[in-house]
Simulated scan of single mutants.
Amino acid sequence: MMTNEVRHLVLGSEEAATTVESYINMGCPFCSTYIEVIDEIFAPHIESGEVKHIIKHVDRTNGALLKGAVAGTYLNIHEPEKTYEDMKHLLETRPEWTASFEEALMKLETLGLVEQEGHGARSKEILDEAAERGVRVVPTVFIDGDKFDFPVKGTNEEIAEAFRGKIESS
């Protein structure tokens, strides 16, 4: 169970009628596609106060996902709009920085990001919560508490269609 001390990257109003929880890792190519697609779909609903989007970075230890886990320690959840822009940039440029830790750290430095305190506790709680909720792959999405199955490996249009249908019917 999440404690009150652990905060996440939250976009949108606490009073939103629909809550989307996205479990992602910045080293994941499918997460890059997911965020690229849903960004434009969710944006007007977040701005209007209809949707709250909670992004939970899941630390994984294999390959590029480990570099994504390192990058996740640099996200400042206290500045959600800037952090979301940094996260999108990291996802868009993922092939440039996931080959080595040196490249990952250089990329984070060029963005002016610094390692954040408290990430260890957040990471552990997210991992525990993900295990409890059956999150085995990233991206995994829950909408209003229910796991939402979408074509994770689908085309941009297939992913967009799934989310447009779901968000616009909420």
Rank of each mutant, 00 (worst) to 15 (best):
residue 28 C to Q: 08
residue 113 L to G: 09
residue 59 D to Q: 11
residue 106 M to W: 10
residue 69 A to S: 15
residue 100 S to I: 04
residue 66 L to R: 15
residue 96 E to C: 03
residue 167 I to A: 05
residue 126 I to D: 03
residue 71 A to P: 02
residue 17 A to F: 06
residue 16 A to T: 03
residue 44 P to R: 14
residue 2 M to A: 06
residue 61 T to Q: 14
residue 17 A to C: 07
residue 14 E to L: 12
residue 160 A to P: 00
residue 108 L to T: 02
residue 38 I to Q: 01
residue 81 E to A: 12
residue 81 E to C: 01
residue 38 I to W: 03
residue 37 V to Q: 07
residue 119 H to Y: 15
residue 59 D to Y: 12
residue 152 V to Y: 04
residue 145 G to C: 05
residue 135 V to A: 04
residue 119 H to A: 09
residue 47 E to F: 02
residue 105 L to R: 04
residue 66 L to T: 07
residue 33 T to W: 07
residue 67 K to V: 01
residue 139 P to F: 13
residue 80 P to K: 06
residue 159 I to E: 05
residue 54 I to F: 08
residue 13 S to W: 05
residue 18 T to V: 15
residue 11 L to F: 01
residue 168 E to C: 06
residue 83 T to A: 10
residue 115 E to D: 05
residue 27 G to Y: 05
residue 128 D to I: 12
residue 56 K to M: 08
residue 89 H to S: 14
residue 155 T to P: 01
residue 7 R to W: 02
residue 97 W to N: 04
residue 84 Y to A: 00
residue 42 F to M: 11
residue 81 E to T: 09
residue 46 I to L: 04
residue 80 P to C: 11
residue 141 V to P: 00
residue 94 R to E: 06
residue 116 Q to L: 09
residue 70 V to K: 14
residue 47 E to W: 03
residue 141 V to N: 03
residue 4 N to E: 14
residue 60 R to A: 09
residue 136 R to D: 05
residue 111 L to I: 04
residue 18 T to M: 11
residue 129 E to L: 11
residue 100 S to C: 02
residue 126 I to A: 08
residue 90 L to D: 03
residue 41 I to T: 11
residue 168 E to V: 03
residue 18 T to G: 01
residue 83 T to Q: 06
residue 70 V to H: 11
residue 149 D to E: 14
residue 76 N to I: 08
residue 66 L to G: 04
residue 107 K to Y: 12
residue 97 W to M: 05
residue 128 D to K: 14
residue 28 C to M: 11
residue 41 I to W: 07
residue 32 S to A: 15
residue 22 S to K: 04
residue 139 P to L: 13
residue 1 M to T: 10
residue 54 I to M: 09
residue 41 I to Q: 01
residue 14 E to Y: 10
residue 42 F to C: 02
residue 17 A to H: 04
residue 153 K to E: 15
residue 146 D to V: 13
residue 3 T to I: 07
residue 140 T to C: 03
residue 24 I to W: 01
residue 93 T to Y: 02
residue 33 T to Y: 07
residue 28 C to E: 11
residue 70 V to N: 06
residue 147 K to C: 02
residue 148 F to M: 08
residue 62 N to M: 13
residue 141 V to S: 01
residue 62 N to D: 15
residue 33 T to A: 13
residue 123 S to E: 12
residue 140 T to V: 00
residue 30 F to A: 13
residue 109 E to Q: 15
residue 74 Y to E: 07
residue 100 S to E: 06
residue 130 A to H: 05
residue 21 E to I: 08
residue 167 I to Y: 02
residue 131 A to T: 13
residue 17 A to D: 15
residue 109 E to G: 08
residue 116 Q to V: 09
residue 109 E to Y: 09
residue 125 E to P: 01
residue 109 E to M: 09
residue 131 A to L: 10
residue 75 L to A: 10
residue 133 R to W: 11
